[in-house]
Amino acid sequence: MRKSRLLHFLVFMLPALALVFVFVIYPSARTIILSFFDEEGHFTLQNYKKVLSSRDTINIDGIARGEFPLGTLLHNAIWIAIHLPFTTFLGLILAVLLRRTRGGNVLKSFIFFGMVMPMIVGGVMINFLFDANVGIVNALLKFFGVHPRTWTAHPETALFSLILGSVWLWTGFGMTLYSAGLETIPKDFYEAASLDGAGPITQFFKITIPLLKPITVVVMTMTLLWDLKIFDIVYVATQGGPGGASNVLAIQMYNYAFVEFDYGKAAVVAVLLTIFTMIAAIPLIRTVGEES
């Protein structure tokens, strides 16, 4: 009987396990091993030393002067610090405001377009948005007397322009998840709160936000992962420039691998990204565990 169960287990699990091994476990292990070896195949920590001491990763001069580039590690951190709260908060607010608004679903669809769009196209659109000649951002700023400029071409504004562009592209994700989450909150809670004299703001903070906590964890974790692996829109819009002012870890990894053909250094960045991603994924795994 036990043998039969084991056989069934293997029959059903083996294809999936084989795929996981071939496409996840083996490449991950190979990348980690690669990061510790030089081109001649000798064990070394030089790859880590080179990457972590590189101006591309942490630019001490730039940090001291307060000028971009600051290094990819800090650029990714800035990306997370701005993009994560913005998209989460905007997603929640839009979901709540558009829930009962007439035509709200149509508006939600428009906002969700950013998510549906391939990020390569998103990068091109960000370029146009912030362009001095044809950009809508400059057209709006002209009303306030701001001289038109290509915001992605200047080191002090390039990264922030990309982050704002990605807020526009990613907000639809949070909004959609929150919209679904709002439908799961029983109306009775709000009715009871109204009877007790609670206003909309109190209801929002005392009912909506606490009950949407699992959704918030998912939105924040997924956004964090997206921020860590951000590549396409940066590559298309600025290629990490000017002068590395908008460079991020994923672009750095790509350059090491496919411009320098230094796979050891590329593997180091990949390992770093994996570590950061795993740290970011822990809250999500815990929440899923608690719920189950």
């Binding site: 080191p155 420039g241 350059n255």
Partner: peptide, 15 residues
């Protein structure tokens, strides 16, 4: 990598 860096650094110099 020099070529890529050269182009990128000139973009910085220009602005």
């Amino acid at each position: 990598i020099f070529q890529k860096t050269f182009w990128d650094q000139l973009k910085l110099l220009w602005v």
